[in-house]
Simulated assay, not measured.
Amino acid sequence: MTSDTKTKVALVTGGNRGLGKDMALSLAARGMDVVLTYNSNADEAEAVAAEIRGMRRRAAALRFDLTDVAGIDGFVGQVGDVLRDDFGGAGRIDFLVNNAGVGRSIPIDQLTEADFDLFASVHFKGVLFLTQKALRMMNDGGGVVFVTAAADRYNVPGYGLYASCKGAIEVFSRYVAKEYGPRGIRSNTLAPGGVATDFAGGAIRSNPGLQAMVVAGTAMGRLAEPHDIGGLVALLCSDEARWLTGQRLEATGGYNL
């Protein structure tokens, strides 16, 4: 492991699989140490952490549930302890990547209050308060990346609730950029399009017809791969992106132009 105390640290939620896994690995490839979270699959998360350690970066996998807002203080304290005890640092982070989420197609007529509470907790309330706490332990010159969705620009049937929560986070991101800009902290949103992962029950991965529709409407002529998105997150957390803040970047390969 590196002994460089100046190494930057990224906290990636939902970093155990899919896009989050590639985000964590892409950040490590750029020389960062990574704390990644998971909700239910500890072995999967630890495998990602082990892969990062194989890249000679420090890594830790911690359980975190975005619906447990009351537990955020304890989680952030746990992150600080890991950074001090295992990473040899001062208990502070440089970047927060808000990636964890849930997805499901629900027509408006079938929405329930329980659906609203779950999606709002995971995609807005939990993200907002985790970001609030994380900013208190973030070094100046760091940044926040909010992973939203291209579906808040164009309509995807059944995703009205999901996209609305993501749209709320995009507004919040601009306020973070404004309030924390004096500290050199930037805040941006990255809105992916169709990627063949297990998100939303593998809706795209398991549906050849949907895949064909997305590809037909995409300028680049293919579905995204996880590294197309993970690499962009790593770029947003790099010095090359230090003058980019308060922006929404749509990563769809040119869908629905």
Rank of each mutant, 00 (worst) to 15 (best):
M137I: 15
M137N: 05
N139H: 15
G142K: 10
G142A: 07
G142N: 10
G143Q: 01
G143N: 06
G143S: 09
V144R: 00
V145I: 13
V145C: 12
F146H: 15
F146R: 01
V147T: 14
V147N: 13
V147L: 15
A149S: 15
A149P: 02
A150T: 02
A150M: 13
A150G: 06
A150I: 00
A150W: 06
D152H: 10
D152S: 12
R153C: 02
Y154F: 14
Y154R: 06
V156Y: 04
V156M: 11
P157N: 04
P157F: 05
G158Y: 03
G158K: 03
Y159G: 02
L161Y: 14
Y162C: 11
A163T: 12
C165R: 00
K166W: 08
A168M: 13
A168L: 11
A168D: 08
A168P: 04
I169W: 00
I169G: 02
E170I: 06
F172M: 12
R174H: 10
R174Y: 03
Y175N: 14
Y175S: 14
V176S: 03
V176L: 06
V176F: 05
A177I: 07
K178T: 09
E179M: 00
G181A: 14
P182G: 08
I185V: 13
I185R: 00
I185Q: 01
R186M: 00
T189N: 08
T189L: 04
P192T: 01
P192E: 03
G193T: 03
G194S: 14
G194D: 10
G194R: 03
G194I: 01
A196H: 08
A196R: 11
D198W: 02
F199N: 05
F199I: 04
A200M: 06
I204M: 10
R205W: 01
S206R: 14
S206M: 06
N207Y: 08
N207L: 08
P208V: 09
P208E: 11
P208D: 12
P208L: 12
G209W: 04
G209P: 03
L210V: 10
Q211D: 13
A212E: 15
A212V: 09
M213S: 13
V215Q: 00
A216L: 01
A216E: 15
G217Q: 07
T218C: 07
A219N: 04
M220P: 01
G221N: 07
R222V: 05
L223I: 08
L223W: 02
A224C: 09
E225S: 11
E225F: 05
P226E: 03
H227F: 04
H227E: 15
D228F: 07
I229S: 04
I229F: 09
G230I: 05
G230H: 11
G231D: 08
L232C: 11
L232T: 14
V233K: 10
A234L: 08
A234K: 07
